[in-house]
Nucleic acid binder design. Structure first.
Length: 458
RNA sequence: GGCGUCGUACCCAAGUGGUCUAAGGGAGCAGUUUGCAAAACUGUCAUUCAUCGGUUCGAAUCCGAUCGACGCCUCCA
């Protein structure tokens, strides 16, 4: 079955053919380590996670690189404001980022290259761009990429720079540039940078924003790799500039498929610090939303559509996730034989093969669940069917990761549950209700079903 | 000004020329089950796809116009 992905570069869905048969190399733009990543950032990281897991499921070997940006305007400013070293600041937020990834069960990249550890690689690349006349040095020792030397500049963004109305921001920028849209490869040191700076052939300074991704992606994935992802806001200028630098420096095709995820908004508002509506992963978990329901909320819309995020959505997601877990638990109590998969599994894979249509794939999974529940209700479910159902759900879970994996019940709770079961057996309803109340107060829920007593976190 | 996206039930959300009198989830309602409660399971829930025209044997899907929401045009996932 063909896999198709929407390529931002060509603005259409294309058949996915990896550069090397059976292997996929992907680069995903990571965080800038100057604050805690918010739920909107994680929408993108989760899209990338699902993409990667899907490619793994269908048999590809993945080489995944995600950068950590630990030097730019924001990190420098914040470190100097807080009077701490750049490393102190970025280590702190990198650590938090890694923890949040783990919370959401996002598979780690194979390599997380750090920008400041690759300044030499960037300098080599900048040098080659100067040598090839794609870049020029200004009086203050900065280096700029000259966009007019690259014919394809603007292709990714679909912008025509010859007929652009100059925005105020651009016009107000450094006047030493040849063309207003030329972008910095190297920024010369300024007073406000404080201690932060690196030596280069053009004097002390620091790398521009885009060069790190070019240098690091090429270092670890080669100058022609399969997929490069990020949020839509990265299309311009970040990825447009990456293409310009990389292609001009190496003369190679660089990236085959560019994939970008749409934004997540809070209700209708854009998340922003001034509005104070930033949601972090730990803050949602603290409110009682499980990582699984957060995952569901973020993947139940297609990655190229905007999400209006809300707590209502999380509550609904929690119930949907519960439904999957419920049927899985039910299946687990039955005998099974065989290793085959149901026909619906093909539809499931086909949905994901069509530009990673996660909502459709979830729909297929849920209607399958309804079907097998009905069958189980009238107890005409064979051991073979049980096995098929379990395999389908487990395979789907390899991508979505919605089954509750750490449902471990603390000892004091399970002791109470046992005590209550005993009371129920002797029909001491008063005592059993009392214990139930106690368990509820501790934040757990007990339910009596025909399969026995169930207990899970509220 | 340029480039582009979107508008599907009470809410969320697939579907992009015929199998659509439109998948799936949540809510509601009804039933089954149950010591009770909760949960679970089942059934039900859009002759209609922002509006108006057009193309076509056939349109939610293509084209045009209108209305509405939004993104990008060097901070941003």
């Amino acid at each position: 079955m063909d896999i198709q992905f929407y390529n931002t570069l060509t603005r259409k869905k294309e058949k996915f053919i990896p550069v090397i048969d059976g292997k996929v190399s992907m680069y995903t733009c990571g965080p800038t380590a100057y604050n805690q990543a918010h739920i909107g950032n994680f929408r993108t990281f989760l899209f990338e996670d699902v993409l990667k897991r899907f490619l793994m499921l269908v048999g590809y070997e993945i080489n995944h690189v995600m950068n950590i940006t630990d030097v730019d305007d924001k990190t420098i400013k914040k470190a100097n404001n807080e009077n701490i070293s750049l490393k102190e600041l970025t280590d702190k937020y990198t650590k938090i980022f890694m923890e949040d990834l783990e919370t959401l069960n996002i598979l780690p990249a194979d390599i997380f290259p750090i920008a400041t550890e690759h300044v030499d690689d960037m300098i080599v690349m900048i040098k080659s761009l100067i040598d090839k006349d794609h870049a020029y040095i200004t009086d203050d020792g900065s280096v700029y990429f000259s966009i007019k030397t690259f014919e394809e500049y603007g292709k990714l963004t679909n912008l025509d720079f010859d007929n652009q109305i100059q925005s105020e921001r651009v016009a107000a920028d450094e006047y030493s540039k040849e063309t207003p849209q030329d972008f910095a490869l190297w920024k010369s040191w300024k007073d406000e940078d404080g201690e932060i700076g690196w030596d280069s052939p053009w004097g002390k300074g620091r790398p521009g924003w885009h060069i790190e991704c070019s240098a690091m992606s090429i270092k670890y994935l080669g100058d022609h790799f399969d997929i490069h992802c990020g949020g839509v806001d990265n299309i311009f200028p970040h990825h447009e500039n990456e293409i310009a630098q990389s292609r001009c420096s190496f003369g190679s095709p660089f990236v085959n498929v560019w994939m970008h995820s749409e934004h997540l908004n809070l209700e209708d508002e854009k998340m922003s610090k001034t509005l104070g509506n930033i949601l972090s992963v730990p803050s949602l978990v603290k409110k009682g939303y499980t990582p699984e329901s957060i995952r569901f909320a973020l993947i139940s819309s297609h990655y190229r559509t905007k999400i209006a995020f809300s707590e209502t959505k999380l509550t609904e997601s929690k119930k949907a996730v519960h439904r999957i877990n419920e049927v899985y638990d039910r299946l687990k109590t039955l005998q099974k034989t065989g290793t085959s998969l149901p026909n619906e599994y093909e539809d499931f894979v086909a949905a994901l093969s069509d530009d990673l249509n996660t909502p459709k794939a979830l729909g297929i999974l849920f209607s399958y669940i309804k079907k097998i529940n009905k069958k189980m209700d009238i107890s005409s479910f064979s051991e073979k069917e049980t096995a098929m159902s379990i395999h389908f759900i487990e395979n789907a879970d390899k991508i979505f990761s919605l089954l509750t994996h750490d449902g471990r019940i603390p000892e004091d709770i399970s002791a109470l549950v046992l005590k209550r079961d005993k009371a129920r057996k002797s029909k001491d309803w008063q005592l059993s209700d009392k214990i139930r109340e106690k368990i509820n107060q501790k934040g757990w829920i007990v339910e009596d079903s025909s399969d026995g007593t169930k207990c899970y976190k509220a």
